[in-house]
């Protein structure tokens, strides 16, 4: 009950930081954005291979506290450099016939770095962008009780359509829809399809709320399902999230986020939240 949870958690967080910060909008030439975050994830139930919600044997559960840092820099009006790194502190309790095992690991996880390019600018109201990035592990599997990821390199391509509404009842609201493909360079992959849709609603000049539905479908030649989820590479989940943001100044905003994995296969029934500070420099 380790690796899959961790990966899911990492992917959830990797996705959400950018969306809440500025979605697929270009950062802007010469501008920087820094998003430190604190993330919490907990799961005590699982979705089995048939998508049924089941309680694992014993009192198996998984909890993680992860510290994240997302940095973006506007190289040109269309091209951004992005770097995202997480440092999870994860705790697992796994019960088997041998008894209950408690494990804990803390360290840097994967680093994701790449470029985002606004392919089409729809009169500054919406952008269609592509993001290409590489994923590299900042750890070695086996060094700690719990692996912090697959421990292999990967790459991702993601397309985003982001914009704001200027008419009718959605006037002032913003949206982001994105889909992408991630591949880990290992004989068993996995290959991951990611997707998400977000609608942001300004409550007033300083406050906003956004609703998001997103998920992943991870597929691998290794389809084995084991009660110990760490060996699973073939899984899927869909989560729903609510984000609430407050803008303190032009340079500083704070977002709180809560999410719940409401559907899945070979994955945890996870819920949690995140706190993100958005610093525009």
């Amino acid at each position: 009950m380790k690796r899959t949870y961790i990966l899911c958690l990492l992917l959830v967080i990797l996705g959400s930081a950018r969306q809440q910060a500025f979605a697929g909008w270009p950062i802007g030439k010469y501008r920087n954005i820094v998003v430190p975050s604190f993330n919490y994830y907990h799961s005590s139930k699982i979705y089995d291979s048939g998508g049924r919600k089941v309680t694992p044997a014993g009192n198996s559960q998984f909890t993680s506290y992860a510290y994240g840092l997302y940095v973006g820099y506007g190289i040109t009006r269309r091209l951004d450099l992005i770097v995202n790194v997480l440092a999870p502190d994860q705790r697992s309790q796994f019960t088997s016939t041998a008894g209950t095992t408690y494990q804990q690991s803390f360290g840097f996880g994967d680093i994701q770095a790449g470029l985002s390019y606004a392919l089409v600018n729809f009169d500054y109201k919406a952008y269609f962008s592509v993001q290409v990035s590489g994923i590299a592990p900042l750890y070695k599997n086996g060094d700690q009780d719990l692996d912090l990821g697959y421990g292999v390199f990967g790459s991702e391509i993601k397309f985003m359509y982001t914009g704001s509404f200027s008419k009718n009842f959605l006037r002032g609201c913003y949206f982001n829809v994105e889909t992408g493909y991630r591949r880990y360079f290992d004989s068993q992959g996995p290959n991951v399809i990611i997707y998400s849709a977000l609608l942001g609603v300004p409550l007033d000049k300083r406050n906003q709320v956004s609703f998001e539905v997103g998920g992943q479908r991870s597929s691998s030649a290794n389809k084995t399902f084991n009660q110990n989820l760490s060996i699973n590479r073939d899984f899927a989940f869909t989560k729903g999230a609510i984000n609430i943001g407050h803008t303190f100044s032009r340079r500083f905003s704070l977002f709180g986020n809560g999410f719940y994995t409401f559907a899945g296969r070979n994955t945890g029934v996870g819920y949690g939240g995140a706190l993100q500070a958005i610093l525009k420099i």
Binding site: G28, K29, R77, D123, Y124, R250, R251, I281
Partner: peptide, 19 residues
């Protein structure tokens, strides 16, 4: 047009390095 003024605003912020 309106697009020009949107661009103008971004241009000002870009040159002044405003967040």
């Amino acid at each position: 047009n309106f697009t020009y003024f949107t661009f103008q605003y971004y241009w000002l912020k870009e040159v002044f390095r405003m967040p």
